[in-house]
Each structure stands twice: as C-alpha cells, then as structure tokens.
C-alpha cells in the first residue's frame, strides 16, 4: 500500500510565514479563493488562493501534510470545505457530488491507483469513456472499440494487454491505466495525485512523456514528491506548506527561494546528495 517514495519528514521544519502570491484577481479555468478545510480543529487547508489557467501544467508540491491531496479532494467533491470558494470555468463546485463534478469535466487519479481488477484493461477504459451516454444505452453489448478508447489505449501503450484482466497489471501499468481512463473521460482538467510514486526509473520516464503528451491539449495539475521528476517536467510550481500557499512561480525561481529550501527542497537536496 505504502508505495510512496521521496518521503519528506516535516518534523522540525520551521514554520514559515506564508505569503499569498498572485492576489491580483486574474481569472483562470480553476479558481480557489480563501479556501479553508478544518478536520476536528486541525486546519488542513488554511486560506489557500490558487488560480490555474486554461492549458496550464501546474505542479503542486510540499512536504507531507501540507494539504496537497486535501486540495484535490475538495476540488473533486470528496471533501467539503469549511469555507471559501472553488469555481471551475465560472461555475461553483461547492456542494456538488463527485460524479457531477466529473461530468463538468474534471477527472482525477488516486495515490494508490484503483482499477477494476475483474474487468479487462479495455473494459476499464471503455467504462470511463461511456459515462455521458444514458444508462439505457449501456444495456447494449459493447461491439468493437470506439475511437476514443483505442486512442487512450494507444497513448498509454497497453494495447497488448487490452483483453487481460486489470488485476494482473504491475503497479506502474495500473497508474498508466488510470491515466488512460482519465483521457478517455475527455476532461478539461486533469488532477494527478503522485503519478510516479513507487515507479522504477524507466517507468518514471515513460510517465513523464505521457504527461507531456497529455498536457499538450489538457489543463493538468500534478501533485508530486519526486524532485527530479519535477525539475524535468514542471514549468509552474505551487508550493504548499501547512495548509497555505508558500510560494508560486517557475521551477528555477521556486527552487532558488530560501523559504522553500528551508521547508522542503533544501532538505531534499541534502538527502539526495
């Protein structure tokens, strides 16, 4: 289960005064304003403002417990925010159910990939692609493979395993299958929660290529722990720390920021060295 790599210890990390970057109201595809999520008195998200523009590839980083996954949970309807607003293409997402948010065009993957093991790889993607058709239409037998399913299968490179049950896939292949299901959904915004966690070097490379390809025609937010992966594929990075946005900017600027180094990157660099 614990397939995470790049675990970063937060114990001892000094609290750094957060600075909200980008408070000038620019409009984006996804906008979070003054978001707060409190679990039993613990402030998991403490006043986050975030704007992600159309077509952007945004990386979300931060030590464990910084609130990255909670943020994605709020956007996708899994967690209800205590206060604040979340708007997608001008429409509020607050109070909508998970499947309704998917139907608006937001798709996500999970840290521990969940695929349907008894269904074949093809059937997994096919189900992801057909949610827009009415349930009655689903009562027909599937004949052949639709174009979008075939395209998704080709993008993730699992054509040879299309008819095998998803239960036999390796960890990396499962993550790709999840990404393939996401592409087949045809979303406007993709949220990937640690897509390369637990992957081998080759698998990371392959996933990076996949990511670059997807980002060409989608807006993507990626949560990632892996620094090397970040340096190679990220352009804009948002650093979360203790439920607030610490800093936001391009990779080089973020890496150079002393506060980031203190809470996160610095430690990581020393560890890696």
């Amino acid at each position: 289960m614990s397939a995470e790599t790049g675990e970063t210890e937060i114990g001892g990390a000094e609290t750094v005064a957060s600075e909200t970057v980008g408070d000038a109201p620019k409009s984006g595809l996804l906008e979070l304003r003054d978001l707060m999520v409190v679990f039993d008195g613990f402030k998991a998200i403490n006043g986050v403002n975030l704007t992600v523009g159309e077509g952007e590839l945004r990386f979300l980083i931060g030590p464990n417990g910084a609130g990255k996954t909670t943020l994605i949970d709020v956007i996708t309807g899994l967690t209800k925010p205590t206060s604040g607003t979340v708007t997608f293409a001008g429409t509020s997402l607050i109070g909508r159910k998970e499947h309704q948010i998917v139907r608006m065009g937001i798709g996500r993957t999970f840290q521990t990939s969940v695929v349907f093991e008894e269904l074949s790889v093809l059937e997994n993607i096919d189900l992801a692609a057909t949610f827009r058709s009415p349930l009655v239409r689903l009562l027909r037998r599937r004949r052949g493979v639709s174009d979008e399913v075939a395209a998704a299968l080709e993008t993730i490179g699992l054509q040879d395993l299309a008819d095998r049950p998803a239960g036999i896939l390796s960890h990396g292949q499962r993550q790709w299958l999840e990404i393939g299901m996401l592409i087949a959904q045809g979303p406007k915004l993709l949220l990937l929660d640690e897509p390369v966690a637990g992957m081998s070097k080759d698998e990371r490379e392959r996933t990076g290529e996949l990511l670059t390809e997807i980002a060409r025609d989608h807006t993507v937010i990626v949560i990632e722990h892996d620094m090397e992966f970040l340096r190679r594929y990220a352009s804009t990075v948002t650093v979360l720390h203790e439920g607030t946005v610490l800093v936001e900017g391009d990779v080089a600027a973020v890496q150079a920021d002393p506060r980031v180094q203190e809470v996160y990157l610095g430690r990581k660099k020393e560890d890696a060295a």
Binding site: K97, E98, F116, A128, R141
Partner: peptide, 25 residues
C-alpha cells in the same frame, strides 16, 4: 451482465467510490 451496464455493476461492486470518479452515480 454481459452489457456495459453489467460491467459497470461489477465495477460498482468492487469499487463503488472509484466509480463516482468515472462520472457515474
């Protein structure tokens, strides 16, 4: 059982919470 609907049913049996994120209720 053999239709897409049946596949969806099995998917719900094995991972109801995941199915929501495929856009189905």
């Amino acid at each position: 059982v053999r239709s897409r609907f049946g596949r969806l049913l099995v998917a719900i049996r094995d991972g109801e919470d995941r199915v929501r994120f495929l856009g189905y209720n």
